[in-house]
Design a protein around this nucleic acid. Structure first.
Lengths: 225, 225
DNA sequence: ATTTTGTGTTAAACAGTGTTAACGCCGGAT
DNA sequence: ATCCGGCGTTAACACTGTTTAACACAAAAT
């Protein structure tokens, strides 16, 4: 049938989930922490990954980032503790990811696994890369932002950032995610750089009052459009 | 909610899909071939089109071309049987937004419909989060609370808290629930933080005496509105 | 009645962010 | 080689949101 990589540091829970999945015909490989999970992922190329978020050595989100380097498509389902702030999780809902709040029922997990398995891979919907943000027209490849007749040419980094904000519009886009993605590392100074870019984007976007970039302190930014 | 135009020549399948969509709250119009579909499109201006590719009279791709003449934006989801890659590419070239291989699961169709509805095209996007609290108008995504002409911009956390109070209005919202959800853990200091936020929300809401946030000692808060 | 616990409120402290401007690097033009 | 302009970074200072502390008070427990 399908192979599933399960990563869960609570062994008791991990065993139960593994057995339940195997009873339903899945082939399961099981790891107890992120590092082992990453190794097993590379060894086995599973069809779906189910990973706890809070784990020793390598947490679920970091693990996901490493997995995405190898494979941008494999579906990842996060298991989050009840005590996980809702915001942190939201950014990961898109892009082949799903999440489940503990405690969850096995049925819920099965449903999600099946839903993700059924999806045929090229899930990228055809984007002509011409996006609409409020009254603005944003051409990502040409890096142009236009309102009425007026057209601004954005720098590459400005365009990349705006695109990511757009892809997460009306949700929180995490600082650390952008920093790792665009800058390659999440450090204090790069963080300040990001702030400067946000200021510039706000300036570009200020002519439509319905478009706003809101800050979520300690987490990231939210583009309202 | 949203209206969907479904075009599928296999009537048995069409009925099933239509019912499933209606159960989930969509308004569905149903056509059995491309010509009828085009007519219904012009008559009803649906938010999303779901069309089979292989149909008598007017196939899905040709239908899409005709629809695009009227409306360059409306999302179109193609249902393809055993599709060759060539078919898929053709569908994208025409500006269709997505495709789905038969057989598909209803969940997968729903997910895609919702994804396409969320790419808000300025005219057809409905505001999801405009709430009324007493005489106040609360826009959750924009984090704005308005009374008469006056408008306050709330912080993210204030907005999240107010939203949760609203969702439980006239019932008790438990402290520990909010603390776990927004703060990630239920400790003494975070508890005091929550108290401070309640004070602030009370201040924001004090201009309508019919709106109140009551305390239930040891349990939580209750929003009266 | 007295103590203990939970909440209301305010303000100070702190860390995160907003903004502007100056700086330095790099590639293209002179 | 030198100058120049564009771009991203760094620095500096102002400002905002959240937490923490402090004190006052109310409700429950003793």
């Amino acid at each position: 049938m399908a192979t599933i990589l399960l990563i869960e540091d609570e062994v008791a829970l991990g065993m139960i989930v593994r057995d339940s999945l195997e009873v339903r015909g899945f082939t399961v490989t099981y790891a107890v922490d992120g590092e082992e999970g990453l190794a097993l992922f590379r060894a086995n190329k599973p069809d779906v990954v189910v990973a706890d978020v809070m784990m020793p050595k390598l947490d679920g989100f970091s693990l996901a980032e490493r997995i995405r380097e190898d494979d941008p498509y494999v579906p990842i389902i996060f298991l989050t503790a009840r005590s996980q702030p809702a915001d942190v999780v939201k950014g990961f809902e898109l892009g082949g990811n799903d999440y489940l709040k503990k405690p969850f029922s096995m049925d819920e997990l099965i449903v999600r696994i099946k839903a993700l398995l059924n999806r045929n891979h090229p899930l990228r919907s055809a984007d002509p890369e011409k996006l609409t943000i409020g009254k603005y027209h944003f051409d990502y490849t040409k890096q142009k932002l236009a309102l009425n007749g007026h057209e601004e040419l954005l720098s590459h980094r400005e365009a990349e950032l705006l695109k990511r904000l757009y892809e997460h519009r009306n949700q929180v886009l995490e600082r650390s995610l952008v920093l790792l993605d665009l800058w390659g590392d999440d450090s204090f100074f790069n963080g300040r750089s990001l702030d400067v870019f946000i200021t510039r984007l706000r300036r570009y976007l200020r002519d439509d009052p319905n478009v706003q970039i809101l800050n979520v302190r300690g987490v990231g930014y939210k583009l309202i459009a």
